[in-house]
């Protein structure tokens, strides 16, 4: 592989790791800081991707209108896609939060798992909504005219990194505010937080919606990177499970950990592809299962031997207090 090929390969790795880092940051708000057990990341990822896709593409016209169906097509710039993705994911999160956030943690898990599967089934079945199983293609990419097609990823990597950094800073700011302290109080002891006069349900809801909005942005970033989306991408394996492992590996309750975990686990994930190349030919078609098996085993090891992840939580109370 020559230099240009290698560098574009590395760029594509970093872009995907960056997108996963956004999802992992979103999960960190919910799990890391508030203790909310969301295993429906794929659903919010999916909503974000589809919303942004439909906001930025025009309504199919002419011959395409016969083959491509979508609910709406606004043909707006990328930034609106990102915002729309965040808002749509936030609305769904709000709706799912109402029945579940008052209840035990594990009910939220089952409910989010259910909503993620439901969202995927709806996108897969309803032709009129977003073209059913064939999905949407030819999604626009921002600033595409600046460089040639081949080098576009060098622009997109900057976009992903900048958005990731903005989200990182926003979460850091929020988490170190009084609001963030309430979230951590709820995580540690819900009873005493509510006895201190904090409306636990309200704070949980804010945290849940905020986290899901971030996941929606992750979905939008993904959609405009691959330029085509189908419901099959947003399965529990690719959409949810791997994000959890990233956060657990990096260190839940630490935003740097969330990002580090995303890059490390994405690296491991890509690395296992080279390992499965050594499998005998008759097992090649089952290579992805070996890769997920390895990832699953890594999770169990982390949970037992290093539940705090690579970098644990920083115990900082406030920037005013050392």
């Amino acid at each position: 592989m020559h230099i240009a090929g290698l560098s574009s390969y590395i760029v594509s790795l970093i872009i995907m790791a960056g997108i996963y880092a956004v999802l992992s940051l979103g999960l960190n708000i919910q799990w890391g800081y508030t203790g909310l057990f969301n295993i429906g990341i794929a659903g919010f990822f999916c909503i974000g991707a589809y919303t942004s896709a439909m906001i930025t593409t025009p309504m199919p016209s002419g011959i395409y209108a016969k083959y491509v169906h979508q609910l709406f097509g606004l043909n707006l710039p990328f930034v609106f896609g990102l915002l729309g993705a965040a808002i749509a994911a936030g609305i769904i999160a709000f709706l799912i939060g109402i029945p579940t956030l008052r209840l035990r943690d594990d009910y939220l898990a089952i409910a989010t798992l259910g909503i993620a599967e439901t969202i995927r089934l709806i996108f897969n079945n309803e032709q009129w909504l977003a073209n059913g199983p064939r999905g949407l293609m030819g999604l626009p990419q921002p600033l595409h005219s600046l460089v040639s097609e081949r080098n576009y990823n060098y622009i997109y990597i900057i976009i992903v990194i900048v958005i990731m950094a903005i989200i990182y800073l926003a979460i850091e700011k929020a988490i170190r505010s009084p609001w963030g302290r309430v979230l951590r109080a709820i995580r540690e002891d819900e009873g005493s937080a509510s006895m201190s006069g904090k409306d636990v349900f309200n704070f949980k809801m804010q945290s849940f919606v905020f986290g899901c909005m971030v996941m929606g942005v992750g979905g939008a970033l993904y959609a405009h990177y691959t330029r085509s989306i189908t419901p099959t991408v947003f399965t529990p394996l690719y959409g949810t499970f791997i994000v959890w492992i990233m956060l657990m590996a990096g260190g839940s309750g630490n935003n740097k950990g969330a990002i580090l975990g995303a890059f490390v686990i994405w690296g491991v994930w890509v690395g296992t592809k080279f390992m499965t190349d050594f499998l005998p030919p008759y097992l090649q078609s089952r290579a992805p299962y070996f890769r997920f098996l390895i990832i699953g085993i890594i999770l169990e090891f982390i949970l037992i031997y290093r539940p705090q992840g690579m970098i644990g939580e920083e115990k900082s109370v406030s920037k005013l207090m050392e």
């Binding site: 203790g35 057990f37 898990a109 657990m248 089952r286 169990e300 539940p307």
Partner: peptide
């Protein structure tokens, strides 16, 4: 929640073994 997370990991491990 950690126990539930662990069981989710077991779910994927079993399914991957079946698929393999």
């Amino acid at each position: 929640v950690i126990l539930a997370m662990s069981s989710l990991g077991v779910a994927f491990i079993i399914r991957m073994l079946i698929l393999i």
